[in-house]
Nucleic acid binder design. Structure first.
Lengths: 217, 217
DNA sequence: TAGATTGTTAATCGATTAACAATC
DNA sequence: TAGATTGTTAATCGATTAACAATC
């Protein structure tokens, strides 16, 4: 209920806090100050305290933050205390890679279905989940709770499939297709645009090479 | 040489402009105004003009922007007019998915090597590139120009392998391991943290459900 | 020339950082 | 109590948006 007007920048940072706290927890660190965390994460202590205080006071003056408590609380903020059923649309290389990525299960995301249009893949199982044909999707969603759909299909097919998913009641789409899905406001879309990520790397590499050249002169 | 003090936010947006211009080009659109592009992309026209003017004036008063010209110029800014050789470290599902993703080649990124530590994978070929053992890496880099290394290995191995890559002269790392690599400033790292992306989706889904509940009341 | 739209300056807005009183 | 560090307000900084003169 507190989540009113939390800025996008803050939300973007939360999973990174969660990751660092998880690592501290693994290393049996019991408490940490915003100053020490800021040094590890290379952000300002001020920013950490501001970010956290959007959601409440998790620390204690003179002490800092209890690592386990803060880890759990951020987990709750991120919704990681819940279980999510995830289906994968598109059983190509990327879809199969996601299906095989066991780390997600640890965080409460269970792959419950994989769909494709290629009849050659029908019945093949990935980690015990058999690939179904796309025309079974509607029935599947009717008979099984599905929270999230991962879209690993070609860009030209993505808009229509996304529209269909929304019609079937899906409210969260993890989109790997290199296109922006224009969907109603009450449908959450998280994009993973690998090609754009690679372009940023090439931009930075180019900028680095150019600055090296300039230094030579 | 113009690239002084371009903000991160601008660089993040460039690949998206590039993508939209590419689509316009495919649809034979010859010219576009910042206003029309802004409507399609759902950003302000002002932002588009500001962003582009960081790199020079690509438009013409009273006319707008020539789509093909702007597409080419942004491509140059992103370094997409060059060829890059990419190696993949880690031939698991994700590494193989990247190796199979032919779209990258179109943009000038050629996969020239795939490496793993698993002897079972030795000699297996993916799109004509055979998987090599990691101990051959140093020799390979000595004998072949490598611009970019994609890291698709477990998080615990990533820091050391990254350090080794840097020692061997690699200046750009596309990191898929869920950990921050602390490398010298003259090494470019672009992270793809899939788990963090999924957490943001779950945050948004949770926020959506909560706001629905509140509306009911 | 008149209309359109850029390039660019100025105004606004929001996010980050600094400072410090509160308090454990 | 004294020291440490949070929570929070205030100051600064940077990014976004608005406005408009320049110009095609």
């Amino acid at each position: 209920m507190q989540e009113k007007g939390i800025s996008l920048a803050v939300i973007q940072r939360l999973p990174r806090y969660y990751r660092y706290l998880g690592e501290l927890l693994e290393n049996d660190v019991v408490r940490i100050s915003s100053k020490e965390l800021s040094e590890r994460m290379k952000v300002t202590a001020s920013q950490i305290r501001q970010d956290l205080n959007n959601f409440g006071g998790f620390g204690q003056q003179g002490y800092g933050y209890n690592v386990e408590y803060l880890y759990t609380e951020i987990g709750k903020i991120l919704g990681l205390d819940k279980q999510y059923n995830v289906i994968i649309i598109g059983a190509g290389n990327l879809g199969q890679a996601l299906a095989n990525y066991t780390d997600f299960e640890r965080r409460g995301f269970t792959i419950t279905g994989i769909f494709d249009v290629n009849p050659r893949l029908e019945g093949i199982s990935i980690r015990g989940i058999e690939i179904r044909m796309l025309d079974e999707l509607e029935n599947f969603i009717k008979n099984n709770t599905v929270h999230i759909a991962a879209l690993t299909i070609p860009k030209l097919k993505a808009p229509n499939v996304a529209k269909e998913l929304v019609r079937m009641g899906i409210k969260a789409i993890w989109n790997f297709a290199p296109i922006d899905l224009n969907l109603p406001n009450d449908v959450m879309v998280e994009n993973v645009h690998l090609a754009e990520s690679l372009m940023r790397l090439s931009y930075n590499l180019k900028a680095l090479e150019e600055s090296n050249e300039n230094n030579k002169k």
